[in-house]
């Protein structure tokens, strides 16, 4: 897996490459956690996530949107994706994490420069976050 934070003047751009689409989603969850907190702490907890979208790139947005929503409304920061399956337009996952008070906010997940697609024999996701 590779995770790169691309230089962006105003916001945060994340590029992830991995062996499969679920791996990219899982790594994206870890990246979100690193944006939300300096150190994971709080009460261990688990969340079931089920999302759908109009196409595969929008699925990456919907996945991260859900994590942003859980962080803001429940104080949930993801720690480990226990189980995940996804198709082109839907995904289902069980995530372990911590419920506390995230230090930082992610306002939103954008469609700008968005990609989530096969890249040779690997998968690549790219997304810009409003922070």
């Amino acid at each position: 897996m590779t995770v790169n934070w691309v230089e962006h003047t105003g916001e945060v751009e994340l590029v992830i490459e991995g062996p499969s689409a679920p791996d990219v989603l899982g790594e994206a969850a870890d990246a979100i956690a690193s944006l939300l907190v300096d150190h994971l702490q709080g009460t261990p907890s688990e969340r079931e996530i089920e999302i759908s979208a109009s196409d595969r790139p929008a699925l990456l947005v919907a996945w991260l949107d859900e994590l942003v929503y859980l962080a803001e409304t429940d104080g949930f920061a993801p720690e480990r994706v226990v189980e995940i399956s996804c198709s082109e337009r839907s995904a289902k996952a069980t995530i372990e994490g911590r419920v506390g008070r995230p230090t930082y906010l992610i306002k939103a997940v954008t469609y700008h420069h968005l990609a989530f697609e096969p890249c040779g024999d690997r998968w690549k996701g790219r997304v810009v976050l409003d922070v």
Binding site: S54, A58, V61, D65, Y69, A108, T110, Y111, H112, L114
Partner: peptide, 25 residues
């Protein structure tokens, strides 16, 4: 969340209005 909801809704509706743009955002 209002912006998130309506970017998604308009992204889905644009083809109905024949709108093609260089950036989905």
């Amino acid at each position: 969340q209002v912006c998130t909801d309506y970017v998604k809704r308009m992204d889905a509706a644009m083809s109905r209005y024949g709108i093609v743009l260089p950036d989905r955002q």
